[in-house]
Write a protein that binds this DNA or RNA. Structure first.
Lengths: 233, 233
DNA sequence: GATTGTGAAAGCGTTCACAGCC
DNA sequence: GGCTGTGAACGCTTTCACAATC
């Protein structure tokens, strides 16, 4: 019962778009833009204006009719809603190609998700410096989670090791998992899991590529989610 | 108007799940399983049985009442529907951490998407061997696309270079793009774009983590898409 | 005049529940 | 008896369209 805006239930589809709006708003702020209309924001995000307005209306009524949204204020509100007023340290399990790439990818830290540590089960990899910090032993996971108060774990292991990684993350106290391994994880009910499967994304593209040839005129219909706009900018 | 099953329109949500079913079916085939019920397949995929049956019903009526689905036959049908009866070579633009990880990740080639080449604009990176083959010049893109008949391009550049990468891919003849850069691409209407934004995935997890503390009892409600099951298996 | 905020309508996707079939 | 295939119901998401407001 705090006096904050928490407790509003925001649709999942909207939650998934807020980070995109936030990135655009921050780019616009850097460029010196003061106000932005729903239509301009929509164009940058590759969606339509009604969707932007409906999405933002779930956060509160932060726009001004006839004017638009004040960029700085909206950034503040979106960040607050997304819980980005503080950092969320993450721990990465698996120091193979992908784990190293994720650990070295500056975008995480910049966007509020600093890498508290990266661990691997392979003794040969322990100590290898990645982006300045050494790969640590899988056994150190609980200590890393405790020390940095990590609540989000990233699994970048082969499929065969992913369930074990998940079990260890949960045992260490992590409550959300981003899984890059091509496997469905079994975790306790309260743990939130999101999955990114790179090969699945390609297979979806493959499906639409294939249909392109065999169906009469699919050019605009049957397009997957995500960004797509005519070359109008 | 061929006599194949093409032309059926399969919902996008179903298309996104077919690759998951396919992976499970192939694992089951390897394990020697002959038949699988919708409920068993659903358990492995972390969805419910009605969804599996409805999804598979879009492909045709390949199950047997009272028995289930014959694994080998269903694999054949799903692969055919997804266009996986032949390989789809891909070209990767950007040989940074992520591009190298993607090129070195065996999962692509194994699942029908061999890497025809990886290019970069940075002269210092040209020639560096990745997974046995050298990074090539950005200018070689058209030649690679032509030689390997590539129709899918993967963008693994920084955000600032992504639009240029997309323009070059389109000019080279690529018709589908998987974009890992945190930017909305502007492409001609006929080009299919899918986006994977790693930081966005973390921000979504952050949102649900944050709500976990501030709302009364969100433990099971408000859970994002994707795999999630109780530890029952 | 411009642009938001939002009910209402339309469109999708999921789940139910059961007839049909082996 | 067991399991699929599917119409119907439900719920979520998108889009429309316009009154409210600056």
């Amino acid at each position: 019962m705090a006096t904050t805006s928490r407790g509003r239930r925001i649709p999942e589809a909207t939650v998934a778009r807020l980070p995109v709006y936030l990135r655009i708003l921050m780019e616009q702020a850097d460029a010196g833009t003061i106000n932005l209309s729903s239509e301009e924001l929509a164009d940058f995000a590759g969606v339509n204006a009604a969707k932007v307005r409906k999405d933002l209306s779930y956060l509160g009524t932060y726009g001004v009719r006839g004017v638009g949204y004040e960029v700085g204020y909206l950034i503040y509100q979106v960040r607050r809603e997304l819980g980005l007023t503080h950092d969320w340290p993450v721990v990465i399990v698996g120091a193979g190609n992908l784990g190293q790439a994720l650990a070295g990818y500056g975008g995480f830290g910049q966007r509020g998700f600093p890498v508290a540590g990266i661990v691997d089960i392979d003794p040969a990899k322990i100590g290898t410096p990645i982006d300045g910090r050494p790969v640590r032993r899988l056994e150190d996971l609980p200590a890393i989670v405790r020390a940095a108060k990590v609540s989000i774990g990233v699994i970048a292991t082969p499929a065969t090791a992913a369930q074990d990684a998940a079990d260890r993350l949960v045992a260490a106290g992590v409550t959300s998992i981003l899984n890059f391994a091509p496997t469905v994880l079994t975790v306790p009910h309260a743990i939130i899991v999101r999955k990114v499967d790179l090969a699945v994304e390609l297979q979806i593209l493959g499906y639409y590529e294939q249909r392109r040839g065999s169906v009469a005129a699919p050019s605009l219909a049957a397009v997957p989610t995500g960004s797509r706009r005519g070359a109008t900018a």
